[in-house]
Simulated assay, not measured.
Amino acid sequence: MTSEKITAETRTEFGKGAARRIRRESKIPAVIYGHGSDATHVTLPGHETMMALKHHGQNALLELTIDGKTQLALTKQVQVDHIHRVIEHIDFVAVKVGEKVTVDVPVVTVGDAAPDTLVTLENSDLTVEAEATHVPESIEVSVEGVEAGTIITAGEITLPEGVTLVADPESQVVNVAAAQTAAQLEAELEAAEAEAGIVHEESDAAIAEAAEEAAAEAEATEAE
């Protein structure tokens, strides 16, 4: 994992009003925790920080320059305004080169499972321990040719070198099941509608078709 170099400004104003003023200037309020020292409150350049998080994912490592000093900071939580599509606040943890950290890393499936199967991620993240400057952006799980009925647990996943599993090795991560047929889906829908008391009124065309079928059956009976 490479770190992005960003110059941060020390922040002395706090509260919602101060945060709004910072965001109006296209900047992001943030705080850095860790290593037994007081939390450091900073302001980050908005676009530069957003691109760093976009490129390096949820565990992005930033090399922050604060008042002439450099601090490695690992992203822990990002608060986003999903309506305006802006970052509202970021929490970091201060780290050092060679230090081990526990992080949640996204799981990504690769390959194609056997035909007529459905691949489901039971856990989208995997908790692991890694050196702070070598946290993987994602962990790949191959489902190539995997048959229906297969469950892949955390302990069965091959992790990158230097990364160790923290999550329960028996926890389910990927589930490969048989895909439902159209008939099964329709039956489930009908059962759900019946349970909910939903009744569909027949269309004029359906009523006419049913009448024609009934008439044809009656004619066939008379002919016999």
Rank of each mutant, 00 (worst) to 15 (best):
T109V: 15
V110S: 13
G111M: 10
D112I: 05
A113F: 05
A113M: 07
D116Y: 12
V119R: 07
T120C: 00
L121T: 05
L121A: 02
L121N: 01
S124N: 10
L126M: 10
V128R: 00
V128C: 02
E129A: 13
A130Y: 05
E131R: 11
A132S: 14
A132G: 12
T133G: 09
P136G: 06
E137Y: 00
S138T: 11
S138Q: 12
S138A: 11
S138C: 02
E140M: 11
E144R: 14
G145Y: 07
E147Q: 15
A148F: 09
T150N: 08
T150D: 05
T150G: 06
T150I: 05
T153M: 04
T153H: 14
T153E: 12
A154Q: 07
G155V: 11
I157M: 01
T158V: 15
T158N: 11
T158E: 15
L159E: 06
P160C: 07
P160F: 10
V163E: 07
T164S: 14
L165V: 07
L165G: 02
V166P: 06
A167C: 01
A167N: 11
D168G: 09
P169Q: 10
S171G: 12
S171W: 00
S171T: 13
V173F: 03
N175V: 14
N175S: 14
N175W: 01
